[in-house]
Design a protein around this nucleic acid. Structure first.
Lengths: 195, 195
DNA sequence: TCCATTTCCAACGTCAACGTTGGAAGTAAC
DNA sequence: GTTACTTCCAACGTTGACGTTGGAAATGGA
């Protein structure tokens, strides 16, 4: 039987996303990742170093995905409310990213990997808001960096404390998800409207 | 030397808050809690059952504290912006609660302890918003449950993903905290303003 | 076909947390 | 001071994850 190095790496990464998102850096074991991927755990150490490095790699990959799937140029031309709706949709469809970010915030906080690169990633979003403000499409009452951050909070908080969301709003039926999305869009527009 | 059962329990609970907030349910070990409290771990099992029960107890205590320290009756008479500011302040001063809630959301989600009691806790807040809406002090564009939830998101997101906040807004100086608080208050008012 | 290289795994020693137990030390009632 | 009870801990066996190692199986070039 032929080797399939790339396939093995892919299996490991896929399993790692699941495990890290589900159990976090501490709760995840290399053994489970390896078992789930159908390989020996030595492969994980050999290909990706330790747990920490693997976590960083997984997070980097997921951030690349969201940047690809929910792009934004400028809120001078794009509706920021609809953007927030798309972010909400993304979180709902791919809960992993948000979970990974929150695990990271809880477990690491300081000493985040790839910090410089990620700072740049966010600076594009801030620039898109600043551009919208300059063109009069968004309020100037809030600074651009805070405005984008708060918009992300409206879209992301639901999955950050899902148990609280459930206790306040009731169970997560499909109808409730629609209602939530509509609230996120409406709230974002209220937050960002000029004048 | 005399026994001090209550004191021992207090020490354990205090240590448990620190450890759980810092490391979460998985990352926390009963051994470390016991060591920090200066007692044998058998005491922990004897007084509080296992790790899970202790976590539930700690969270319950912290929720009682915030309910006491940031009370609210009705947003018909109280400014919801200032309320959000107080929630922000509370999170900044007592990061434990937010961290515990996020650990809980990540580690347990379904199967939250004391769910009924906590649902009631939140229903008071929703009622305060509904009252504000009935008196024309708050917008009716958003449902009361979603509005309070989103307001809490504006106040809480900063500590939920502190690393993201840092990358977007820069380091957490005292000035930056002031700016954040002001943004939370302003954003909440924009979100909730009637008409 | 032979040999160097790469991929892969079973098995290992180490370490730390789990939850429990047997009994010592302290307290209170009589 | 004897008895009954409570508080406390040292020590235990068990389990599971860590990261490593020695070598087997597969590959590809000479």
């Amino acid at each position: 039987m032929a080797w399939d190095t790339e396939g093995t790496k892919r299996s490991i990464l896929d399993a790692a996303v699941d495990e890290f998102a589900a159990h976090g850096p501490d709760g995840t074991t290399i053994e489970r990742i390896a078992r789930k991927a159908g390989v020996n755990k030595e492969r994980v150490y050999n290909y990706f170093g330790g747990k920490r490095e693997l976590f960083a790699r997984v997070l980097r990959d997921e951030l690349a995905k969201v940047a690809r799937d929910v792009p934004v140029e400028s809120f001078a031309t794009e509706d920021i409310g609809e953007y927030a709706g798309r972010v909400y949709d993304y979180h709902r469809l791919h809960p992993e990213l948000g979970r990974l970010l929150r695990w990271e915030g809880l477990a690491f906080d300081a000493a985040v990997p790839d910090e410089e690169q990620r700072r740049e990633h966010y600076s594009y979003k801030t620039a898109a808001v600043a551009d919208g403000q300059e063109h009069g499409a968004l309020t100037r009452e809030l600074d651009a960096d805070h405005l984008i951050f708060l918009v992300l909070s409206l879209a992301g908080w639901w999955s950050a404390v899902p148990q609280v969301a459930r206790m306040i709003t009731g169970d997560e039926t499909e109808a409730e998800h629609q209602r939530r999305r509509a609230s996120v869009v409406a709230a974002t527009r209220r937050l960002a409207a000029p004048g």
